[in-house]
Simulated scan of single mutants.
Amino acid sequence: MKRASGLQRFMNRRASASHRYQPTCYEHAANCYTHALLVVPAFMGMALLHRRSDGGWQQLTALVYGLGLIALFLVSSVFHVISWKKSHMRSVEHCFHMCDRVVIYFFIAASYTPWLNLRELGPLAAHMRWFVWFMAAAGSVYVFNFHERYKLVELAFYLTMGFFPASVFTSMTNAEGLSELAFGGFLYCLGVFFFKSDGVIPFAHAIWHVFVALAAAVHYYAIWKYLYRSPPQS
Rank of each mutant, 00 (worst) to 15 (best):
M1N: 10
M1K: 10
K2A: 09
G6C: 07
Q8R: 14
F10Y: 14
M11I: 14
R13D: 15
R13C: 10
R14F: 01
S18M: 10
R20H: 10
Q22H: 14
E27R: 08
A30M: 06
Y33R: 09
L38S: 11
V39L: 11
F43L: 15
M44W: 14
G45N: 02
M46K: 08
A47G: 03
H50C: 12
H50Y: 15
R51W: 12
G56I: 08
W57K: 10
Q58H: 07
Q58D: 05
Q59T: 07
T61L: 01
V64C: 03
S76A: 13
F79L: 06
F79E: 05
H80N: 03
K85C: 13
K85S: 06
H88V: 07
M89D: 15
S91N: 10
C99N: 12
V102T: 15
I104E: 04
I104W: 10
I108T: 05
A109K: 09
P114I: 03
P114C: 11
P114N: 12
L124M: 13
R129D: 02
W130S: 15
F131H: 06
S140H: 11
V141Q: 12
R149T: 09
K151A: 00
K151D: 01
L155C: 08
Y158W: 10
L159A: 14
G162E: 02
F164H: 00
S167Y: 08
S171R: 04
S171F: 04
M172G: 02
A175W: 09
E176M: 04
L178R: 00
A182M: 14
F183Q: 09
F183G: 09
F186T: 03
F186I: 01
L187W: 12
L190C: 05
F193H: 05
S197N: 04
H209I: 01
F211N: 00
H219Y: 12
I223C: 09
K225L: 05
Y226R: 02
P231E: 03
P232D: 13
Q233L: 14
